[in-house]
Design a protein around this nucleic acid. Structure first.
Lengths: 340, 340
DNA sequence: TTGTAAGCGTTATCAT
DNA sequence: ATGATAACGCTTACAA
């Protein structure tokens, strides 16, 4: 049914180690027998057992990836970047979703450990230090991708985007267009990118000698609903903001939809800027101005780092920080005191 | 470094088989030693080697999933459905992207075979019959999800949405609103859902005693660009259509963007309907009327089928067909001879 | 160039 | 209740 090298050996009248050598391009084998065995193996539909091989080789050529959810345009592109570079190095990826529950994230990592993956990449982790402690100690590189800064100890590994600077870019764009009352809808509470983006927003404000007004900060969720819920609050302000910087594109898109329903014109009545540059940012109306994260790159760099560490096994620890870039589309414009 | 049961056995002063029994809740073990061994295992940071276990047990508790690309809102939700139900049955998933290249799809399946996954789920496959031949014969269930109908032989396994009926629903919705000249932008050529949706469109037309006009059919790609490119062609027609049924939401969203740039009002000047109901369909402007595919369900059912087949090992072959549902939003309205 | 044998970390079948 | 021992499929010294 599933032929092993022993079955092929029997059919070829050789020992199973000869078959192993023939199949793994060993130099110590006669070209003729090699060819004969390979033909036979193909005929019999042989497929090497990766598990058995890993047992003796000591590595699995597999990496584990844990995301909060796959059904999110941001994660999806990051995973695409990981998978793509894994593929080109003959690695495969085991994917697990944590649903943003720490215990489930831990269970996933434990499963990956059992599966003996050669490295683990965890995105948006809130408990990355734990994995580092368990896996890192066991010699398995753990790479934290866009994860909480508290987890980013010096002996830890990480790849992330510069959230603070990206947020500064977004805010400066608004500032440069004359906006002075700029609101901000945050991401999920307790998530570090959210804190970093808020910090970038504050930094830009302060660099422009503008005061920080807590009344202009609205709590979001990172999902469209967060933006939708923020809009009425924002409109209820006596001194209304003329622009809003949203934690991410999904939030901005939700806010855009709410603005449309409220009869508010974007960008004329309100400029809106997001973060991420998810594929659909270009297709909403008005097309969303945003700070593009190098999503595919993020995944690629994380996988590259994993590969390097697997090869060198010298877990030195390193941090890669990529920069986001401002993408100006139609949802932002200059502030006009007389709207229209 | 990575303790095995032998290391624990040594530390506990017992044989490795006793450790194995202690750790796997065997009834043939003294409660006290069991507790002692488990404590020791925890202290030493033991993690069972899933590969070694699989070798003797004969299964890996892992399924392989191959999609064309992960960075697609449709696939992403399907995979989420698969992963989620896999997780709740303690299964893990190896994910591979084929980039819609048959050879890469084949390579991915071959890799999965080597990894000895207990089942394989392939979405949008164009060469599913091949996998069935190689893997199915080897006793590994292969489930085709939304794959080409040619691949769906009776001894094959599949889960899919009723594309033809969904397309009929979409077209009937337009018909019911008085539209008579209804254009259609197809999906990627040679992809069977595209053919099925075209067939559903034709069926609805013919049921309404309307002639099929090939001039109203425009080739798309399944991506926004397909819709964007189709719009000018559609406008160039002397007898312009009053509505258009798009292969999928991404196509419709592209077309919506092009329409906006062309100063065309949707739905007043042109009704637009999509297919899939991706998360962003509700957030474009106007919100997209579409036929919702039960994406998460599709993944869930495929995984359930995999689990059943793994348990029963009686590869009987089965086909599950789920229905899509019409979701009316704002991009479609009744036909008015005097537009506006 | 090939065969023999040991070993990877488990589980499972024997004894004891 | 526990300990030897074989087996899973493979790679890799070590012999021949």
């Amino acid at each position: 049914m599933k032929p092993s090298i022993k079955d092929i050996a029997r059919a070829a009248g050789v020992s199973h180690s000869t078959v192993s050598r023939a199949l793994s391009d060993s130099p110590l084998i006669n070209a003729a027998t090699r060819a004969r065995i390979r033909r036979l193996a193909a005929e019999m539909g042989y497929s090497p057992d990766a598990g058995a091989r890993s047992l003796v080789r000591g590595h699995t050529c597999t990496v584990g990836v844990v995301v909060t959810t796959i059904a999110d345009p941001f994660s999806a592109e990051v995973v695409e970047g990981i998978e793509s570079t894994a593929y080109s190095h003959s690695y495969s990826v085991i994917l697990a979703a944590s649903q943003d529950e720490p215990e489930r994230e831990i269970a996933a990592v434990e499963m990956l450990r059992s599966k003996r993956v050669d490295a683990v990449i965890v995105t948006s982790s809130r408990v990355g230090a734990l994995h580092q402690e368990r896996l890192g100690a066991a010699g398995v590189p753990v790479i934290l991708l866009n994860s909480h800064s508290q987890q980013l100890a010096p002996h830890t590994l990480s790849v992330r985007v510069d959230d603070m600077n990206g947020a500064r870019l977004a805010t400066e764009h608004l500032l440069a267009h004359g906006h002075r009352r700029i609101a901000h809808v945050t991401g999920p509470a307790g998530h570090s990118p959210s804190a970093d983006r808020l910090a970038g927003y504050r930094a830009a404000l302060s660099a422009a000698d503008l005061p920080f007004d807590p009344a202009l900060i609205f709590p979001g969720t990172g999902r469209p609903a967060g933006g939708e819920q923020a809009l009425p609050l924002l409109l209820a302000l006596t001194a209304q903001p003329t622009a809003v910087f949203c934690y991410n594109d999904m939030t901005a898109i939700g806010l855009l939809a709410a603005a449309r329903r409220a009869g508010l014109r974007v960008p004329d009545d309100l400029s809106v800027i997001g973060f991420d540059d998810i594929p659909f940012a270009a297709y909403v109306s008005p097309a969303l101005t945003t700070v593009a994260q190098p999503k595919f790159d993020l995944g690629q760099r994380a996988m590259d780092m994993a590969l390097t560490l697997i090869a060198g096994s010298s877990g030195e620890g390193g941090h890669i920080m990529l920069q986001g870039t401002l993408v100006v589309r139609e949802s932002t414009c200059s502030y006009k005191s007389d709207s229209g």
